[in-house]
Structures are given as structure tokens and as C-alpha cells.
Design a protein around this nucleic acid. Sequence first.
RNA 1: GGGCCCAUAGCUCAGCGGAUAGAGCACCUGACUUCUAAUCUGGCGGCCGCAGGUUCGAGUCCUGCUGGGCUCACCA
Length: 616
Amino acid sequence: MEKTLPEIIEAGVKAAITDLYQADGSSPEITLQSTRREFEGEFTVVTFPLTRLARKKPDEIAEQLGAYLKEQVKEIADYNVIKGFLNLVIADDYWRDFLLDAPVKEGYGNSPANGETVVVEFCSPNTNKPLHLGHVRNILLGWSSAQMLEAAGYDVKKVEIINDRGIAICKSMLAWQRFGEGATPQSTGSKPDHFVGNYYVLFDKKFQEEYKVWQETAEGKNVLAHLGKEGQSAEAFFKGYSKKYFNEYSVLGADAKAMLFKWEAGDADVRSLWEKMNNWVYEGYEETYQKFGVYFDKRYYESNTYVLGKDMIELGLEKGVFAKREDGSIFADLTDAKLSEKTLVRADGTSIYITQDLGTARLRYDDFGAKRMIYTVGDEQNHHFATLFELLKRLEEPYADGLYHLSYGMVDLPSGRMKSREGTIVDADDLMKEVIHEARLMSQERAATSELSEEEQDEIIRQIGMSALKFHIIKVGPQKRMMFDPKESVDMQGQTGPYVQNAYVRTRAVWRKAGNPDVSPAKNYTGLAPAERELVNQLYAFPSLVKTAAESYDPSLVAMFCYDLAKSLHKFWHDHSILSAESPEAIAFRLQLCKAVGNTLQKGMGLLGIEVPERM
RNA sequence: GGGCCCAUAGCUCAGCGGAUAGAGCACCUGACUUCUAAUCUGGCGGCCGCAGGUUCGAGUCCUGCUGGGCUCACCA
């Protein structure tokens, strides 16, 4: 493999130090960074760290290094020194030859396969209601991380774990059974997951009605009198007492719990109702996933996995990692790892959430042999995953060092946090509908594609709307809690998906117009304009950026890269003519430049799960 | 109370020890007979939460503080 520019420069600087200062050039860390926009050059050597070694002033070192490199290293054409910073100008020939090679080819940015498998889990919904904005962030993060890892050479398996059991789905089931009167998604014409979600909401409504009535009964008043705090209003008390009421007094609550009990006992009627309703939900989810353009290689269901993990407990006891209490419960003491004491099996022998997670981790390893597993889950579970990973490490599981919690912050609305009780949940399907609607309005206003068929226009509009939504969410780094303003999410100008798409469209438009041009003169092009150098330089950075983004599980890096590249393209487009450039060499070179930029934008956006249209 | 995370322009966000802290939105402004103006040009806008420390150099690293979030279940 050929050496990269940073490697070439670093080697040159080390040789220079040895030659110029008779010092050991192999030892120092060379500080190399990309040159700031306002100065000439592409790479910058910071000379401050070398002052001790060279025993000279920074400017003097920079000047001497620059002269040496210009003389000795053929890739370096020129240099300038500003306040101790040595800016290096890469030779035109190098940039030109580079451009005409890798970036114009298919698959630029991909690393060769490394033979390693990584499992990426994302989405992982509960089956009682439709997907919402929080899932959207999760899906986009998980999916694009998976794409980036694939580009970085991994064999990626995308999985989700579906929480298909428990009290929540029983609530929906009970409400449907009692109030549904045999209605189905087909009979009502609703999207099936929304249909089921509506019964979950209906359950809560009926429950609240029942609760309200109870509050006025002698029993309710008695509870208030005994447990209500001094000066607390009845309303405030009952608001906080709702969970307790559900478990101890509510008829509906008792019925829902009875249904859960029957489910666990394997009651045939309950199981068949459960399957029917869950299948509705899956049908609805599938539609949403397809609209997002995502899929899974394998699905895990908690109804299967919740019994797992017992063998891990045995293993832990054998290894002395876990211990038994007097009452029979089993726990792990993680206090020396700054985590708490964690119970794994209750005194009655039943297991809990984290136990099944232990079992599921092993199951996935058995399924795929992956030594790396990524869990895309909100940051409220940071502690849970820290505990889980620590336990697996102590169990000496072979994949324990490759576990990563892809943690992300909650999505807030301008009105504050999303709350189902207050009806401020932003539904994923509605959101898509809205951005596509907005894209349609913008498109009608422009009428740039009006001669295309209606189907073609619809497809373009869909791609534009989805890119606005996806880009808007992905451009924010995962760790940060983010503000989601619906008004801004439908923006199509500025730092947005459509802005990047538009740059791609331009690179395609010029090629359509050019027909089947002869690009061979490009190899004789000389005297690159600053805007051209800038673009080639950005293209040059793409493969390593993909690697960095993949290793840090941060798709926002790719999003910002695409934006920056698109911005440079737009600027170049404005300042330079392509098809009527001054020479055949320039025309050919710029066409190839457009091809490479379009190619890279398509690849980069593809990593984010965003499509680019040929026209817009 | 312990642990983790966050705080940068009016708003949403970049900035991962280096140069005069950057984008987008909003507001003001100029450019379409041209390879598509979903674009481009110019302007406005900052005690980088506060106080110390380390360093040739700190928005970035360390300590303390303030404000916000999450979490510390024999819940999932």
C-alpha cells in the first residue's frame, strides 16, 4: 500500500530533524493538522513542540523545515510560515493523480474486509404502542453505525430485541377484548401498530375513570385520610398513588395482572390473543422500518429470552463471581468497580431483567460468533450497561472486551420532554408524513422536475423529505440530549439533507449535459484552482474519516463531512464553469472532480441511510 | 448522599492540547437569459457557566463551585 500524505510528511520532518539539528528525529511526536481555511496549504506542522530539540525559535525551525521538505519531498510543492506554523502545499500533480484514481471509482471509502463480526442492536421497542421520535433517533444512530462499521470492514449483524411480553401488552389485550367489539386494523382501516396502541391508551382512559370513581368511595377517602400528607391536596395525592391503586384496588388492574398470569401459565386463549395483537404490531412496525429503509438480520423476542441466563448464574457461582444470600437470592458484589451490589436471582428463584441480558449476550455470541456487540440504548440505561458489561467481564466471556453501549441523549421538544400522559409524544409515522408533505410544497414551488412522471416526482419528494428528517437528527452528536423543533426538522435550506442532496444533483446534472465526454485530457491538467484543491483535499480525507466515525460510533462526523463537502461543491459551482472551462484539460478534470464528489456524497449519505436523487 | 453526562452567538449545534472560537437558522443585504438560485456574496451577532491549576500554548486536560439531566430496584 502506498504511503499516505501524513505518513510522508511525518517521515520527511523526522529526516529533516536528523539532518538539520543532528538530533534523534525518530523520537519526537510530530504535531500535524489540516491547514485552516484562511491560509494557503493543506497540512500544517506545529513547530512549538520541536523548540527544545532544535534549540531554535519556532519561526526559524518552520522556515528551515519548510525549505528542507520542499527540496527533498516531491509531494510538497511549497510552504509558508505563519507564527510558528508551517503550512505545506501539496503538489498539483499529486492531487490530480490521486483524484483520477480512487475517488472516481465505486466503493471509495470502504476498507477491505477484516474478517470480524460485530452485532449491532437497535430500536428494541415494546409492542404495546407505535414507534415515536425517541425510536427514530435510536434507529438512525444504530443503522448508520452499522453501515459505518460495514464500510470499515466488519461483517455486521443488525438485530433488535422485542419486548413482546409483560403487563403493558396485557393492558392493550384486555382493552381490546373488553371494548373492541371485534374490530380489526382492516375493519377500521388503521395502521395495525397504531390500532393496538389505541387500545393501550383506551385502557389507561378506562382505568383513570375507574380510579376517579374509587377516589370518592369510602375506601378511597379512607386511604387519602391515612396516607395523605399534611397540606397535600387530594388531587396531588391521588396522582402519586396511581401505581399503588393499580396493584392493590383496581379491578382493571387485577384483570390485567390475571391476564399476565394466564399468559405465563401458557393459557391457550390468552396466548392466541397475544399472538394476534403482537402480529398486528409487527405488521405496523415493518411498514415503518421500510419507510426508514432499515431492516434486521435477526429478531430476538423477550418471550423467548426472558428464561435465559440461568446457566450464566451457575457459571458465576462456580467461578465465585456471584454469591448466595441466606434467603436464597443470588447477587454479585460490584462495589470494588464503583458499581453497586446487584441482585441477579430473587429469593423465590425467579430471575430479573439483567439475568436475561446475560443470557441474551451469550445467545448472540453463539448465533454469530461476534467478539463485538453494540447496544443502541438511551443514556438512562448507562448504569445498567456498565453493570452488565462488568458482570460479563467477570464471567470471562470471550466477547466481554468488545461490548459497547451506544448511548444517546433523550430527544426534547420545544415544549419540554415528551410525555405520553400529556399527549406530547411525536409519532414516527406522523413525522415522516409531515416532512414529506413539506418537501412536496417546496417541490411544487420550484417546479424543477415537473416534466417527470408523477411516480418519479413522488419518489424524489419522498427522498428529500426523509433526508431532511434524518440529517436533522443525525447531525447532532449521540451523547448530547437534543432539542427537536418540528419546524426546523422540515427545513430544506442551509445545514440540511436537501442541501447535500442538491450538491449531488448538480454533479449529476453536469454529467447528463456532458453526454459521453472524453475525460482522458484530465491527466494533463495543471494549475489547480484553490476551490479544486479544497475539494480534492476533502475527498482525500474521506476514508480515514469513515474509519474514525465507525470506531467512535459517531455518524454525526459523517453528516458534517457531507455538509462540508457539499458546501465546497456549491461554492466551486458558483465560481467556476465546468463545461465551458478554459481548456479541454480543465473540462475533463472538473467533470472527474464532479464524479468523485458525487460518488463520495452518495457513499457518505448512504452510510447515514439517506438516499440521493438524480434530480430534484 | 454516591456515580455518570451536559453547559460555546438570540435559537439549534460544530470545535476531541495549537493560529484571530466556527456553521446553520433568525435579522439586514446583493446576485438568476448561464452546467438547476433547495445555491452563492456581504453584514449583524461571543467574560466558551464561575474560580483556580497544569502547559511555550486551554473552549479543549486537572481540581473546586453553580445550574440542568440521568442513575444508584429482589421493575423492564
